[in-house]
């Protein structure tokens, strides 16, 4: 191996809050680990549970879903739906012998660039302690 483990993280960020928050982190030149592949979605409620399962099946080490704060959803209730789906998905992952911590839901508003950077740092650290996705052949694939 030699190289230290760098987790691959798939991040779904909602267009109205979290993606703008990530932009804010970038334009403010905040430092955060480059492990995430950010995918912009129109709403965190657009993240079908199958996206999460497929990402993990395809050996992603962690999945982050970032949406608006409760009450701030551009589509009124998308983030509430996501919160409930995430709770159920974590149960699904547990049954599959995957650590539920590999899936995280974060609320990041468009103004919270610092919070986005902070979330990334703590999530990457958490995944590093968990180690690679067990499907990924010890992080080799």
């Amino acid at each position: 191996m030699g190289k230290s483990f760098e987790p691959k993280i798939v991040a779904f960020a909602c267009r109205w809050c979290s993606y703008a928050g990530a932009d804010m982190a970038g334009t403010s030149r905040m430092q955060y680990p480059p492990n995430a592949r950010i995918i912009r979605v129109n709403c965190s409620g657009r993240v079908d549970p199958i996206f999460v399962l497929r990402a993990l099946k395809l050996k992603a080490d962690g999945v982050l879903i970032a949406g608006c704060h409760p009450g701030d959803c551009h589509y009124l209730t998308g983030n509430y739906q996501t919160a409930r789906r995430v709770a159920l998905l974590k149960e699904y992952l547990k049954a599959m012998n995957l650590e539920p911590e590999r899936l995280r839901l974060a609320y990041v508003s468009a103004a919270e660039g610092a919070k986005f950077a902070e979330t990334m740092k703590s999530f990457v650290n958490e995944i590093k302690t968990l180690g690679p996705n067990p499907l990924s052949n010890g992080g080799q694939d």
Partner: peptide, 21 residues
Amino acid sequence: AVDDQAAKMIGAIGSITTKDF
């Protein structure tokens, strides 16, 4: 059109449950 019945159901449960936590 669906790969995983559980994913679909979890999606459905998210939509039909109350939005009042």
